[in-house]
Design a binder for these strands. Sequence first.
RNA 1: GCCCCCGUAGCUCAAUGGAUAGAGCGCCUGACUUCGAAUCAGUAGGUUGUGGGUUCGAGUCCCGCCGGGGGCGCCA
Length: 601
Amino acid sequence: MFDRELEEATSHIRQALAGLSLPSPEEIVWAPIPFAGQWGYGTAACFQVAAAQARANPGTQVKRRAVELAEQVVRKLEPVSGFARFAAENAYINAYFETADYAARVVDACLQSGPDFGRGEPQPDRLMVEYAQPNTHHSFHIGHARNAVLGEALARIAEFAGYETIRASYPGDIGLGVITCIWAYDKFHRGQEPEGVFARGRWLANIYTEATALVTPKDNETPEETRQRQTYDAERRELLRRWDAGEPEVRRLWERTRQWSLDELLEVLKLLGISIDVFFLESQAAELGKSIVEELVASGIAEDERANNGPVIVKIDEKLGMKKEKYRTAVILRSDGTALYMTNDLALARLKFEKYHVDRSIYVVDFRQSLHFQQVFKILELWGFPQAAKCYHLAHGFVTLPAGAMSSRKGNVIYFMDVYEEAVRRVKAIIAEKNPELSAESREEVAGQIGLGALTYAMLSVDNTKDIVFDWETALSFDGQSAPYIQNAHVRANSILKKVARLPEAVSFDYGLSEHETTLINLISRFPMLVQQAAREYKPLLMAGYAFELAKSFHGFYHAVPVLQADRDDIREARLRLTAATRQTLANCLGLLGIKAPNVM
RNA sequence: GCCCCCGUAGCUCAAUGGAUAGAGCGCCUGACUUCGAAUCAGUAGGUUGUGGGUUCGAGUCCCGCCGGGGGCGCCA
């Protein structure tokens, strides 16, 4: 927002240094001055110059020299429009903005752009973000929710930052686990089908858990139990073979139950505000994958050990000439010729590049699969895909329970819908207490927005790499650093603004601004740059932290600074516009996180 | 054995190589006849696991060690 001014200041500094017969650093970097209350940007350029001198003249004290230099440079600096003054402080060169101009420019720019405030210029790269890939025949749990919420936030941020963004989902709809579920369904529950999308999905997931228990060896099995289990195991493997052979009866059973899971997935995604552009199903990738394996064997990248009852493998470290084992050996096709996860991911990558023409491909998958994706990307590289360098595995931590990992197979999972419903229940109780006059209709809508917001925020306010230990009180916290706190700031801003018929036209901020106001304006001015940074670093956390900062500043402002009751009309108008700009920025920022900004709560 | 991630306040977590390492929760003390108290103001809390190195400057980068988690040929 202040690129032009800072560029001008940069060239002035270079001139001043030249005037002192000193070389300029290659790059002069500006950062916001950390002290609250006064606005501006500062640069540590003098440290670099002093350091260079110290290298030439040993014995030079760098810090003292940097302080001297900053003072000398500032004395020689010509005024730059937009800046009130330059100051040498602590060896930094600080440029302070013209208060009234700066405030008006920030607020006007925000209100003029409205929902587009912070949106970046269109970028040439096309991105695909792949996320929300639970297996079918399971039910959507809180760990899936973290993945989905994180991927969606990334997609929104990338899109807003200016990249054309395609949202992709890749449910795993086949594999021995899926077949095990179908086997048990057909054997013990044939023809049954509960009412309701969520109830049905959950019911199917329970069958999966029960079925897994039936085929898993137990301690202290009786011979009778062992025989039974082995029979069951043989049955499900036979079913997999029949599936692979394409038997219509098995396929129909599979497709029907799969649809139950996909129906549930779509409902959950809808609830989360996620609209996927491209669905890849794992089962559809197998055929292409197998042909790719043949290609890799033919080109000498892969080795076919099937003649010796082995699988098809790629010795990645060897191919790369690595001394230490790092990427190891990847199995890309089973010895019986059936496709693996790896087979399918190779096919999928190729589809992304060749059919959807993506320049950058982002895989949002938990970090347990880091090696898998490193192998995929390296094989793509060996294969000759230039886009391999632009594949990125966003490895995120997973959601565990205080007692340990969740496991669909073991059935000890926290389902997303249970948490969501509990969140809504709690929010409703609070509304009943704090805002009883809210209409029943609004109450329903708002409770969903707040409850889901709290849950979403709890997942996005932790850095990608960290695990989240799920507990109800933390996940559904409505106080402190939480979505409801931020949403409440939005509501409070709105409650002021709805009392005026029309927002005043652009006004001057030429009065003594309080620190509360300067802090707000400073934060608002930084939003567009932050969007770019979050997109570049794949870090929704930055937006989550920022939204809280902004809300906190607004709450402070709201408490201490009168808006409607301001002493003078011009101050009142300026503060109304500042309030509106804050509301807009809060809404935009929450929107990037996939969190709704209600007008009442 | 090898590879990846993490270690910051009692707890949960922040901090583009830059200025005095910050929030929230919890504890304690205050503020609603006031634009909505789901709020605000204040108190207390630190040898950033550890030892070196690079740098004008390191929580951040490099190496070693300690501790925790994950992964390593036909699960996904």
